[in-house]
């Protein structure tokens, strides 16, 4: 890592007053996703408000990523997903994104041939007019500049994103969500493959973003979840199994059972505390 994340610099990105986000909340009601008869998400209700850093956990195949796919228009779903009073289901993905919902993918999907700066510039530009699009970029937009500093990629701004280290790519993804001005950030395993130091920085960054915006993190890393989550939703077999604070959830009998497969071994809490999930 050449540079670290600067959480303080984030203040320049999150310039809008927190009050503007006060009434933001993501409201999912009776969401159902069926693939060829297989029910991947089965009647999920979920409400996440701004100022909350919600972790979505669960064993493999619990439907976490499918839930994110459904919210962002990638998977066909029934039910209701509302944000800021607007129904998102049935809209095309790019319209959902324009309504303020941003997401990342499990595998970092930055534009590898474009530079870090170009990646951020594209993320910031969905609202640009054709006239602007057809011209070359003459200056760096201020929000892009601020995001570069926040995610600690200022020194590599002119390198192709493809040469970045794995952790840096994940940070670039978060930076893109910020300049995209997403009000809801859906992050799919943002710290997978990161070193301990990078995890800590990312956690702090997400906490700060979560104070203002609506953040949902799909994560497998229990340790990371315990340290940074303000609330947790546990999914299992397409349903919400438990919801609450970190301690409430980790002490929940059903959650322990799901994570251990069987209670007979009787050391569920210990395992979760050790950060093992699989």
């Amino acid at each position: 890592m050449t540079e670290d994340i600067h959480v303080e610099a984030l203040e320049n990105v999150l310039t809008e007053p927190a009050a503007a986000f006060k009434h933001d909340y993501l409201e999912i009601r009776d969401l159902k996703v069926v693939f060829d008869g297989f029910v991947a998400v089965d009647g999920v209700d979920l409400t996440v408000t701004s100022g909350d850093l919600r972790f979505l956990i669960g064993p493999n195949g619990a439907g976490k990523t499918t839930l994110v796919d459904a919210v962002t228009g990638l998977a066909p779903a029934a039910g209701s997903v509302r944000f800021g009073g607007v129904e998102l289901l049935g809209r095309s993905s790019h319209r959902i994104a324009r309504s303020g919902v941003g997401r990342t993918f499990q595998t970092a999907s930055v534009f590898e041939e474009l530079t870090v700066l170009q990646n951020l510039d594209i993320a910031a530009g969905a609202g640009r007019k054709l006239r602007t699009l057809l011209r070359r970029r003459t200056s760096v937009p201020t929000e892009v500049e601020a995001a570069l500093e926040t995610i600690g990629l200022g020194k590599v701004a002119h390198l192709p994103a493809g040469v970045l280290a794995h952790g840096q790519k994940q940070w670039l993804e978060i930076g893109m969500l910020l300049v995209q001005n997403a009000h809801v950030l859906l992050l799919d395993e943002p710290v997978a493959g990161m070193s301990q130091a990078e995890r800590e920085q990312t956690g702090l960054l997400l906490q700060r973003i979560g104070q203002q915006r609506t953040v949902v993190v799909v994560e497998h890393d229990m340790e990371f979840m315990r340290t940074y989550a303000s609330s947790v939703t546990v999914m299992h077999q397409g349903k919400v199994l438990a919801e609450g604070s970190v301690s409430e959830v980790t002490e929940d009998e059903r959650v322990i059972e799901v994570y251990l497969g069987s209670r007979s071994h009787g050391r569920g809490t210990a395992v979760i505390e050790n950060g093992e999930t699989k």
Binding site: H94, A97, S109, V110, F111, E112, Q118, N119, D121, Q180
Partner: peptide
């Protein structure tokens, strides 16, 4: 730049709010 982005990661571009 956008066109290259679409070529390499069409879905990512979609989730940034472009068609």
């Amino acid at each position: 730049e956008l066109l290259v982005a679409v070529r390499d990661q069409e879905n990512r571009v979609r989730f940034l709010g472009y068609d």
